[in-house]
Design a protein around this nucleic acid. Structure first.
Lengths: 337, 337
DNA sequence: TTGAAAGCGATACCAC
DNA sequence: GTGGTATCGCTTTCAA
């Protein structure tokens, strides 16, 4: 496996050729006579030689590795995206290395300055937290996924958050709901904001007002979903429907409803943003806005690989790929008509 | 960030010193006069220079990075272990790089031969699939987690699978159960086998026979858990208790029981091996054998770092750390006495 | 304290 | 086709 000490020189000596020749047979590009190739191959075999790719990288500046940086490796959304990424990367001959920052922004910087960060051929940043300035500082091929920043100078793959929230809300309305609440978190990034706007727009368009009491904000965590749902349901005039703006908030909401001994789709209607395990488990299952997680990873990796190969930086404006979402209707919305 | 072109030479030139001196101030080991240090630092700042750690690694053969290889990044068990690992690694100044093989054995080999595999200072293999021979071929510090192979030549961190299964089964028995079934998967590795033996031993010790009809084997997947549970519950003489030998089998079992409209802890008793989201969600919650996931990661990283530092290979026999498990009693086992 | 120079292990250009 | 060698960016003796 990892034969530290044997180098191309040893092989050259044993095979009675120059290191240049050995390098040639290793890379198979230049032509080498059959006989010498054979003896070199034999020597390689005999010595159990494995080329030191790091040394090679030093001269040709390619490592054939990509990195994917995520804020939380325990969130199934991220791992699903990663899976898509890895699939394409592998097909294209790249190794993918995953890095979780555990929500700490500084980690992202550290990574980029580390051995790894400096030696990957390209980077995919999922759900990243920084500001445009930071991204502009990254000089190598990079793709932003799920969260995008204008003027960041890189391509991006994201979904239509606005539309997803809009359709969820519309769905409630079509089935006769009027007291529709939304639980979300800070509006510090576009994805969160867009979801709220989608909700708001749908309400206004239908002539419904957006009661501030029906907008509960937490920190996008499961515990918040639980707490906020309890608050809503215990208020004087509870909503008839709740839109949970991300996967974990939705899980919290499901727990809360269960703990209050209420029946989803009967006593309270619910739609979640993003698929999650509990939404699939409970009966009736919870209607969710499904986003194409794996597909996001695929797209990101494809964009990245293309960018790496198009070395003649076509300096074209960064492109953004926006994938559609789908309202997966299940049984959690009661028909009030 | 990634200033490709500026090297130590540029800094040297600007600061009017030799590259050796620059190297010295970068590494802070050798002594440098305050005045030169200052001017070098200034030059570094001015040029926005970031040393190329890859080149450095070429000479000192250290990269300060570890890698963790897992079969499935979507399984919460693995990500929990990873989290523990990363924590220690970070504290000790190592970067952790995660690699998921998606269950493909060959990936593991590829990884070890890749740029990455050859350039990390140490490796943690979680739930790995190969045979001892393979591991012996890995010449650098390596720790096996969760699954161990005798004569593999490396240290390991695992849990007491036997005991966990034994106690779960005993618990059933103590509460008066006699028709106790087990659902598991292939017995191709020790962890799986040990769980079965623990179950069997507990049964025999209590004078209960292990009816083959009550031992259902699948492939350790959630779908199997579902299917096998259905089979058990629909058989002529259904068991009164089921032991699901891993986390996803348990989830499948919970789904199956729910779909048959049976009440956990009432119509059928259930214990799962390893914590899982559904076990915590349903009411009553499902009793599980809890294993110290994060702790496993911590231990593994600590062992690894120590090994990396003890360069004078003390060739001591490989050590194995076996962590205890805990039967987390919740409400899913009915008292038949 | 500082500098010159010899590597680390490969690649690639230039001769032959 | 094949070999010699400069080079990648840094560390580390060895002298001065």
């Amino acid at each position: 496996m990892s034969n530290r000490n044997i180098t191309i020189k040893d092989v050259a000596k044993l095979a009675n050729v120059s290191v240049a020749t050995v390098s040639r047979v290793i890379n198979g590009l230049d032509r080498v006579s059959d006989s010498t190739r054979k003896s070199v191959l034999k020597a390689i075999q005999e010595l159990n030689f494995v080329p030191n790719t790091m040394a090679a990288s030093m001269v040709n500046k390619k490592t054939k590795m990509l990195s994917v940086v995520v804020p939380d490796i325990q969130n199934p959304f991220f791992t699903a995206v990663i899976e898509g990424t890895v699939e394409v990367a592998k097909r294209e001959g790249f190794f993918t290395l995953v890095l979780s920052t555990n929500g700490e922004e500084s980690e992202e910087e550290e990574f980029l300055e580390s051995f790894l960060g400096k030696n990957v051929d390209g980077i995919i940043l999922i759900g990243s937290h920084k500001e445009a300035e930071f991204y502009r500082g990254i000089l190598k091929p990079t793709i932003l996924v799920d969260r995008y920043f204008n003027d960041c100078g890189h391509d991006g793959v994201m979904i239509d958050n606005y539309r997803g929230a809009y359709e969820a809300t519309k769905h409630f309305i079509e089935l006769g709901h009027e007291r529709i609440a939304i639980i979300d978190g800070e509006h510090d990034f576009n994805d969160g904001k867009d979801r709220y706007w989608g909700y708001q727009q749908a309400m206004l368009e239908s002539g419904l007002s957006t009661d501030p009491d029906y907008h509960k904000q937490g920190h996008w965590a499961e515990a918040d979903g639980y707490q906020l749902t309890i608050e809503l349901l215990k208020s004087e005039l509870p909503p008839t429907a709740i839109f949970a703006a991300n996967n974990v908030l939705c899980k919290g909401a499901i727990r809360a409803i269960r703990d209050l001994d209420l029946q989803i789709g009967e006593d309270i209607s619910l739609i979640g943003f993003d698929e999650n395990e509990l939404a699939q488990f409970v009966k009736p299952q919870v209607t969710v806005v499904r986003r194409p997680t794996r597909e996001m990873g695929l797209q990101a990796a494809e964009l990245l690989v293309r960018k790496i190969r198009d070395t003649p930086r076509e300096a074209g404006n960064p492109m953004r790929v926006v994938l559609g979402v789908e309202l997966l209707k299940r049984g959690s919305v009661k028909n009030l008509r």
